[in-house]
Amino acid sequence: MRQVVSHYTTWIWLLLVALTTMSWEVGDGQATGISVSMVTPVLLLVAFFKVRMVGMHFMELKTAPLPLRVLFEAWVVVTCGTLLLIYFQVI
């Protein structure tokens, strides 16, 4: 059982929980140092960074056939990018 838990993905899980808690603090306005207009972009970038971590390390796309990995990475970039463009009222 020990070899199962002492896998690098346990660190990924801890990082994901830490980033989630930080996002909540930023979003609830508890954290200082981030201007209000940057809250949403920061939250989006952190969220899609987390999504990519789940994809690469939990869904094992890191070692998946390249077309599948590229498709996933494209989804992350396009979805996050378009949300940012909408937020900054470019589109």
Binding site: S23, G27, V36, T40, A47, V54, G55, T79
Partner: peptide, 14 residues
């Protein structure tokens, strides 16, 4: 993964 986006999108975004 979908909830990771939904949480900030619905609950936190300004």
């Amino acid at each position: 993964l979908l909830w990771i986006v939904l949480f900030p999108l619905i609950y936190l975004m300004k």
